[in-house]
Design a protein around this nucleic acid. Structure first.
Lengths: 162, 162
DNA sequence: CCATATGATTGAAAAAGTCAATCATATTTT
DNA sequence: AAAATATGATTGACTTTTTCAATCATATGG
């Protein structure tokens, strides 16, 4: 039985969790990059989702809206590939955004099977607001890093994400 | 209409996706840290899950097993907190690991409601093998980064993940 | 002792992910 | 050109993951 401290709650300090979980910060798992990545994204997208709820959006629908507004005229197939989602999930996401008048499905003259997702004027306005919220959320999640560190992180992630 | 190239398949190059999705790499979304984090973890845990399938494990169960083997005697509550999972999910994960004889639920003398998850001898052996596989998977996912860059990434992530 | 809080468990419901089948249209083969 | 094959979007079924509320046993604070 390794050192069962009788006083225990007194060691708590950080605002993360209220318990004695800090003990687990020293484990092998806690320093695996893959684990840290998973945790970072869980915290980050959790917060973003909470904040985006105000606009009735989630990270998913925000991503689609963002790409629709990118000027790259993505097709649903491309959205599926890029977001690593099943085409059927894209259908559902676009359905929602279309229903609320944020995007439209445009015919692609070069391939009539394909549908290009374009933003409406309202969609662009929605995106502007969402973008601000996401930036806020991100700022909060990355609070511990300065600008240069964020740049470094972005570059490292980009290299493993593509 | 922005430059609709009639020849199109000729521009493809990278081994990532087979389509014209590269076009979307230049979007705002593609450079958001939160998006990159999500994508990195999706790729990473996808690969790890595939490779762990050989041991009938997933990243989830591997994480629990790893913490069980950490020497920190985590309770289910602590596992839930640390892994950001609902307590009921921990029950299911521990059930599975217990059923295959990899871990046991030990009574905590200091709190009889609490159950400490401890590895069996077989559990430790399983963890050893799983660890090697996860390391391989991680190595593959982080192939683009050298050791120093991996260290940097680990530190940056640690600061936003805790 | 009583009231309240917490850890584990169960079960139900919602959301997300996976797959196969279908229709329309492209592309390739012969 | 006709036939065969492949692809984009869509639907529906099905599985897995998430999320929540309720319950029981035990702790903890008055």
């Amino acid at each position: 039985m390794p050192a069962p401290t009788t006083a225990e709650a007194t060691t708590s300090s950080q605002p993360t969790a209220g318990n004695g979980v800090e003990r687990l910060y020293t484990t092998d798992l806690a320093s695996e990059i893959e684990f840290l990545t998973a945790r970072a994204r869980s915290l980050g997208s959790g917060r973003a989702n909470n904040m985006l709820a105000e606009l009735d959006l989630k990270v998913r629908s925000y991503s689609v809206l963002s790409l629709a507004c990118s000027g790259q005229n993505p097709s649903q197939r491309e959205l599926a590939d890029f977001l690593s989602l099943d085409p059927s999930q894209i259908v559902a996401l676009v359905d929602q955004l279309e229903k609320r008048g944020a995007v439209t499905r445009e015919a692609d003259p070069r391939d009539r099977r394909s549908k290009v997702i374009a933003p409406t004027a309202a969609g662009r306005r929605l995106y502007k607001r969402a973008e601000a919220i996401v930036r806020q959320a991100s700022d909060h999640s990355l609070a511990q890093l300065n600008d240069q560190e964020r740049e470094t992180l972005r570059d490292l992630l980009r290299r493993i994400a593509f």
